[in-house]
Amino acid sequence: MGTMIEAHDLSKVFRTAKRRPGLLGNIRSIVDPEVRHLSAVQDLSLHIERGEMIGLVGPNGAGKSTTVKMLTGILVPSSGSVQVAGLIPVKQRRELAARIGVVFGQRTQLWWDLPLIDSLQLLRHLYRIPEQRHRENLQTLRTMLDLDEFIDTPMRQLSLGQRMRGDLAAALLHEPELLYLDEPTIGLDVVAKTRIREFLLTLNAKQGTTVLITTHDMDDIETLCPRMVIIDHGRKLYDGMVESIRERFGGERTLVAVLDAAEIAIIAALHKDPHGQPQLPDIPTGVHVTQWDSPRLSLSFGRDSIPAHELVAWLGARYRLRDVTFLEPEIEDIIRRIYEEGLLLQDAELML
């Protein structure tokens, strides 16, 4: 497949001048300002293969946008090295611009008063796309993104979901190898989010476009990205598969079992815990009843206490099971726990 992004020890430090209080302080601020250094990104290394879909996750101020700006050549790194599609972003920004697409969820590259089709025609000249290629790409995007219902409408009259689809079309007209998405589903309703996600999955599968997504929406990550990178205060906390972090830091899982109603009523009557609540007899160590709503029973269990299949076998050997469902911890809750508890995931088996 080949490498799309290769960054080593990438750092960005911003210099800010602080004004001093008082008249003399203001004068001194001009001739001898107090300079502060803000480290936005620290020693960040990334390796992204062509065709991957990666989620870049972090709280506000974590360094996500600064990282993307260095990868696109907008910002010059303070230290470290980076190559994107074999190019050095700062030195070869013009060549790189022809090979990448960028969509910012709260900004647009469309012209405010022009119909969408006019913006897409103007972009053909900006990107110097051959007419035949532009016509074919535009027709493909009109179909995939269902643009025809509003393609003659000025951008200022579009809904947020329609504008996002228009921005995606604008970013993909020149067939970029790499697509940067910054909060692509922010503010969208459920239907619009689903449509955007389905489009991105199709784009990646059919055209092999590499996609790097920065988002606060963990549903975006779980739906689109097998792998994610977590950063906080400019440092990388985790780089690996979504399922791996769930297994390592996901806490307890929940098994929801539907038993025979008459049978569970007998159990509830005969077996109670010290607080008078129904309890399963001889329950395995590390397993707890969290909800008893006949005929539905919810059991929580740690990943290290008992394997899921053994718990199902234990239940099935004692009771008539009507249905069994497993509930995994929400990835959003896992990420929140990592931030709150300051978990630095530097384990060799988790870091790429």
Rank of each mutant, 00 (worst) to 15 (best):
L178P: 03
I117Y: 06
P184H: 06
I213K: 04
E310Y: 07
M70N: 08
G166T: 09
A98D: 04
R320E: 12
E6D: 12
A313K: 13
L350R: 09
L38Q: 12
P184F: 03
K12C: 15
V258C: 02
L311F: 00
G58P: 07
L96W: 08
D273F: 05
R227S: 03
R107K: 15
R165W: 01
D152I: 00
Q291E: 14
V35M: 07
F150S: 01
R197G: 02
S79V: 07
Q106V: 12
L179M: 03
L201K: 15
A98C: 07
V103N: 12
D217V: 04
D167S: 13
E341C: 08
D189T: 02
R337F: 08
P281L: 00
V82F: 08
G250D: 11
L224R: 01
I230V: 11
V84Q: 09
G22C: 04
L10I: 14
I117C: 07
T202W: 11
I283W: 03
Q106T: 15
L343M: 15
R320Q: 13
L212A: 02
V68L: 15
G101W: 04
S79Y: 05
I196S: 09
Q162G: 08
L122G: 01
G234S: 06
R94E: 14
H8K: 14
E149G: 09
Y180E: 01
D113T: 03
V103H: 07
R235W: 00
G22D: 01
L123G: 08
V84N: 02
G286F: 05
H37Y: 14
P59T: 08
G22K: 04
D152C: 05
L344C: 04
S29Y: 03
I30Y: 02
D323L: 10
L120Q: 10
E136V: 06
L188Y: 02
L38H: 15
T153F: 08
H37W: 06
R163C: 01
M53V: 15
T202H: 12
P59Q: 09
E332W: 00
D239F: 03
W112K: 03
D220Q: 13
P284G: 02
E131N: 11
R135W: 02
G63E: 05
V312T: 14
D260Y: 00
N204H: 01
P295T: 02
P274S: 09
E263M: 10
T254P: 03
E95I: 00
S11A: 11
Q106C: 13
S298V: 05
